[in-house]
C-alpha cells in the first residue's frame, strides 16, 4: 500500500492485474456493454491512481475500487443521450376497491435452474431487466446483482436509503410482471 501511494510502478501493475477482472465484471453488468465497460475500467483506474493518496484503510481496497468503477459507470450512463424514461406504473401490483390484491394463481413457478439451463430463456431474462428504466434498473443491479448495501447505493446515487428501498421494491415488482411468462414456463 505504501509503495502504491509512493507511485511505485510494480505496485501499480500488481494493483491493476489483481483488481481489473472484478472491476471489469461489475462494469460489464452495470453497463451491459463490454467495450464501454473496458473504457470505464480504464477511467476508473486513472481516477484511482489520482486519488490513491486519499485512500484510508477504513474500507477494503477492493470495495474502494468498486465504488470508483460504479461511479464511473453511472457517469457513462448519464452522459448517454438522455432517453425519456418510460413509466413503470402499469407494472405495479393491482388492488381492488377493498384494498385486496389481485394476483394470478401460479400453478407453476420455474426455478432458476429450469430457466437458466436454456440459453434463450436466460437471454430473455437479461433482456427484460434491460427494459427497466435506468433509474430502477441501476438500483436493481447494484442491490440484487452486485449485492451492495442500501447504504453504499445511497451514497453512490446521492439518494436517501428510504428512496433506494422504494425504488428497489418497485423495480422488482415491475420485473416480476415482465418475467411472468418465463416464470410460468410459458416462454
Amino acid at each position: 500500500m505504501a509503495a502504491l501511494q509512493a507511485g511505485d510502478d510494480n505496485a501499480a501493475e500488481t494493483l491493476v492485474r489483481t483488481h481489473a477482472p472484478r472491476m471489469l465484471g461489475v462494469a460489464t453488468r452495470v453497463l451491459g456493454d463490454r467495450a464501454l465497460a473496458e473504457d470505464c475500467v480504464q477511467e476508473a483506474f486513472v481516477n484511482a491512481f489520482r486519488k490513491i493518496g486519499d485512500f484510508e484503510q477504513r474500507s477494503s481496497l477492493s470495495s474502494w475500487l468498486r465504488r470508483i468503477v460504479v461511479n464511473q459507470a453511472l457517469m457513462k450512463l448519464r452522459s448517454r443521450k438522455a432517453k425519456a424514461e418510460t413509466s413503470i406504473d402499469a407494472l405495479m401490483p393491482i388492488f381492488d376497491g377493498d384494498a385486496c390484491r389481485i394476483e394470478p394463481a401460479w400453478p407453476h413457478l420455474a426455478t432458476p435452474d429450469e430457466i437458466c439451463e436454456h440459453a434463450d430463456r436466460r437471454a430473455l431474462v437479461l433482456a427484460k431487466i434491460a427494459e427497466l428504466p435506468d433509474s430502477y434498473r441501476i438500483i436493481l443491479k447494484l442491490r440484487d446483482i452486485e449485492e451492495m448495501s442500501s447504504r453504499e447505493v445511497s451514497e453512490l446515487l446521492n439518494l436517501s436509503e428510504g428512496n433506494i428501498r422504494v425504488r428497489l421494491h418497485r423495480a422488482r415488482a415491475a420485473l416480476k410482471v415482465l418475467l411472468e411468462p418465463i416464470l410460468k414456463g410459458e416462454e
Partner: peptide, 11 residues
C-alpha cells in the same frame, strides 16, 4: 417476487 430476484441473480 422472491423468485424474480433469484432468477435475475442467476441469469
Amino acid at each position: 417476487y422472491k423468485r424474480t430476484i433469484e432468477v435475475s441473480k442467476r441469469a
